[in-house]
Design a protein around this nucleic acid. Structure first.
Length: 415
RNA sequence: GCGGCUGUAGUUCAGUUGGUUAGAGCACUGGAUUGUGAUUCCAGUUGUCGCCGGUUCGAGUCCGGUCAGCCGCCCCA
């Protein structure tokens, strides 16, 4: 039997309904914050990710679907969407004014990695990026939007975990202090951390190994080594979040995996998830636009994994909200033609209706309606045709009534 | 990329120390006055035991490989 490629997935049924519900909620919430959608290509030049995500990162080194196309171009299937959005914004000169530019995206990403539950090689991300504003206020705006988004999806007890990773200018001072700290208790750290301290020192901070977390007790804190502007920025954000009543906690061990982050980094935790695993992450990336060849424009953004979000929502909320159409069952030859005409009128009037066209016994059609979760069944037979009515059965209660044909559309609409 | 576990009807699973025609619940199909579902009763269908090879008189059961899924790690969010 033909099978989907490993890590690729087909979406349909109840799972897809959650995806759709999430996407609708995203569009509604982001739209009212003034964000516009952007759709960028799945294929980008390799260089876009090398220069943004970071040449040393595992994403770029090991996890990209990468190939040479027939024209000899080195292309990759995007492993994330921020780089593509930035590339597009630069290419179309969208960042050449002083106005803020607000984008959101919903799209598939690809990473060649080991699969686990809720984790695929083709996965979906929703993200929002705000360009052109460097203030803590713009971050508060973005986080408020995110908070509304998650709240409207029904997630509870959200906590924002925040930190500041400083700037390239302030980071060396911290790195030096941290390396000294590490060296003093080197033996207590795991093998991976010994590697990390060389390649990406900040990563030692979020090692999952309990011994490492214990050894980190009393470690130098990044926020103590910030430059003055970054420190002020960080303090201001905390004031704003407090004033806005957004629950947050400072987490000095919170870092980002991608190279392009500066200053604010954050994650969102929900009591609906396991205690330690984050639902999403994001932060400020003031250097990326310029780094990719654009103007010197600050930016802030975040991304959330749709596959995982849909899975969590299905667990905590069950079925995604959806409505089922009514079902029209004709009985007899004459009624079958009349039913087709009636259905056409109802469809044209905007009514959601499914038509039984198999022509079998009513009993079977009813059983079928039950399996499909249909709540309202319309029966049209010779008796109904005589009287110009349709028999309506409400599946939940079993009650039946008779509606005049002319009122079917309006009565179904107000169901 | 590294380590471990699993793979039997549509689905959830059972299948004794290898032994004859591989089972159950649910689902599905048909029926219990042909215009009434979900409840009840009766009857019935369902499988290359993931795939390929090996050991054996004999393999769902043991061994190897492979594919797929799951759990850690790495990585990410």
């Amino acid at each position: 039997m033909a099978q989907s490629v490993k890590g690729m997935r087909d979406l349909f049924g109840t799972e897809l309904r959650w995806f759709q519900h999430i996407e609708e909620t995203a569009r509604r919430v982001f739209g009212r914050h003034g964000y516009g959608e952007i759709r960028t290509p799945i294929l980008e030049e390799l260089d876009v990710f090398k220069r943004s995500v970071g040449e040393s990162s595992d994403i770029v080194n090991k996890e990209m679907y990468e190939f040479t196309d027939k024209g000899g171009r080195q292309v990759v299937m995007r492993p994330e969407n921020t780089a593509g959005v930035v590339r597009a914004a630069i290419q179309h000169k969208l960042l050449n004014s002083s106005d803020p530019v607000l984008f959101y995206y919903i799209g598939q990403q690809f990473r060649y990695e080991r699969m686990q539950t809720g984790r695929y090689r083709q996965f979906w991300q929703i993200g929002a990026e705000s360009f052109g504003v460097a203030t803590p206020e713009s971050e508060a705006e973005s986080l408020l939007m995110l908070h509304s988004f998650l709240t409207e999806l029904g997630l509870k007890n959200l906590t924002f975990s925040i930190n500041s990773v400083g700037t390239p200018e302030s980071r060396p001072a911290f790195h030096a202090a941290f390396r000294a700290f590490f060296a003093a208790r080197e033996a207590q750290f795991c093998e991976d951390c010994h590697r990390r301290i060389e390649t990406n020192p900040l990563r030692v901070l979020d090692c999952k190994n309990e011994k490492c977390q214990a050894a980190l007790e009393g470690h130098p804190v990044i926020t103590d080594h910030l430059d003055e502007a970054s420190a002020k920025h960080h303090a201001r954000l905390k004031v704003l979040l407090t004033e806005l009543g957004i629950p947050f906690e400072e987490n000095p061990r919170l870092v980002r995996g991608l190279d392009y982050y500066t200053r604010t980094a954050f994650e969102v935790l929900s009591s609906d998830l396991g205690a330690q695993s984050a639902l999403l992450g994001g932060g400020r990336y003031d250097l990326l636009v310029k780094h990719l060849g654009g103007p010197d424009v600050p930016a802030f953004g975040w991304a959330i994994g749709l596959d995982r979000l849909a899975m969590v929502l299905q667990q905590v909320r069950g079925e995604a909200p959806h409505s089922t159409p009514a079902l029209l069952i004709p009985l007899g030859d004459r009624a079958t033609l009349e039913a087709l005409k009636l259905a056409r009128n109802l469809w044209d009037a905007g009514v959601a209706l499914q038509l039984e066209t198999r022509g079998g016994a009513l009993k079977k059609a009813m059983a079928s309606a039950n399996r499909l979760g249909i709540r309202t069944v319309l029966i049209l037979g010779d008796g109904e045709l005589e009287g110009g009515t349709v028999t309506v059965k409400h599946m939940a209660t079993g009650e039946q009534e008779s509606w005049p044909l002319g009122e079917v559309a309006s009565r179904l609409a107000s169901r």
